[in-house]
Amino acid sequence: MPQVSLTVNGKPHSVEVEGRTLLVELLREKLRLTGTHVGCDTSQCGACVVHVDGESVKSCTMLAVQAEGADVTTIEGLASADGTLHPMQEAFREYHALQCGFCTPGMVMSAIDLVMKHPEGLDEKQIREGLEGNLCRCTGYHNIVKAIAAAAEVMHGRRTELAQAAE
C-alpha cells in the first residue's frame, strides 16, 4: 500500500493509503478531521474544499497520494491556538453567512483563497463569480457575499473591525 507523507494544519503525518484513496477520505477517515465535508462527491458543490500548498482544491477530486509532500490546511487549521477565529470565520459569524452550515467549511476555504488572490480588493460581482465552485442551498448567498467583502477588508488591513466594512 502506498504511504503518503504530508503536513496537515502544521502537523506532519505519514499515512498508509490505497492508490484510490481520495484526499478527503484521508482527512476525514484517517486523520478524523471531519470539518471538511463531502456533499456531491462529483467536484461540483465545494463542501470539500481545502488548501493544498495555499491553493483551494476540491479534496474529493484529488488523490491522497497526489498530496505527497504537500502542506494542507483544513477548516480546523484556521483558528488560532487560543481559539481566536480567522477573520473569514469571524465574518461568517458576524454576517450570519450560514444556515445549516454544511457548505460553510468549503465556503470559508474558497473565500480565503479568493481574497488572498485579490489583494487589490474585490467587488460583489467578483465575489459571486469566485464562488462558482461552491453551492449553498440555504442562504441565497447574500450574507456569504457580505461576509467575504467584510473579511477581505480586514485580511488586507484596510479595516480592523468587521462592522465598519458592512454596508
Binding site: 482544491v57 477530486t61 484529488m62
Partner: peptide, 9 residues
Amino acid sequence: LGDTQVRNR
C-alpha cells in the same frame, strides 16, 4: 472554464 478549484488543479 470550470471554477477556481478546477483551475487550480
